[in-house]
Amino acid sequence: MIKKIVIKLLGYSKINFIGMKKHKGNRFVIKVSNIQKKDARTMEQSLRNIKEKMLNGLPNYYGFQRFGLQQNNHIIGREIIKGNYNNAIKLFLYNSKSPKKNIINNKENIAYKRKILKILNQKNSNMENALKSLPVFNFFLSSYQSYLFNKAITQYFKEFGYKNISFPVLGTKKIKDKFIIKIYRSLLSKDKISLNQFQKGKSSIYLRNYSRRTIYKSKNFSYEINNRNELYLKFELGIGHYAGLILDFIFDNEYVKLD
């Protein structure tokens, strides 16, 4: 079977400068086929708007990839923080509102589900242990932190305008800014969680403390339409930003995705 990878030797180095998030960013080239033009002027206007928005800055939201195949990792995280392990497991095992082919066929997902069931069948096991045995356990918690961040910056934009600041992601550490803590407290209360419960919950639960900018800018955005009705988008994004969320909004149809 032919595997789809190729490696190229670049050279040798005295130090290891390669590692998680040690690069500057990513450069994208995206080809869009069979562009449906309403009229040339509208199209040009749309592309100019996209370019302006990309260069001036987009909200630094966490995109769909952060929330899992079933888009409910944050809900599972919320239930874990509330101590509702039973609910969390049910959501993980059964909740799939729109089962897609890739969910069913995802080997990793099936393996995790099997692992949970195996542990639950063992003596002296409980829901908490079963969940914690999953390598993705911390993803559920960070998904909930990301969800709160998305909601919090939206609220911030509404109250204080579209400003680019370093915004804390709610973790175990106290947040000094009174307005930001007020936003988080109100968001948590909607989920029936107190700030104290979130920050001083079970010691076994790890909630990372860090900050993230509220707005990010793309560099070198350009576009080109050729006479074969193909549109090429070229742009650069910093680390931690995904092209998927941008593409989802540039296009108003559900574009074709490969399996």
Partner: peptide, 21 residues
């Protein structure tokens, strides 16, 4: 909305086409 994003703040490109062919 499910993941806490307000789509009003994002791009509305209104372009139709096929990606990932």
């Amino acid at each position: 909305k499910n993941i806490g994003i307000d789509s009003k703040f994002l791009i509305k490109g209104n372009i139709r086409g096929e990606l990932y062919l």
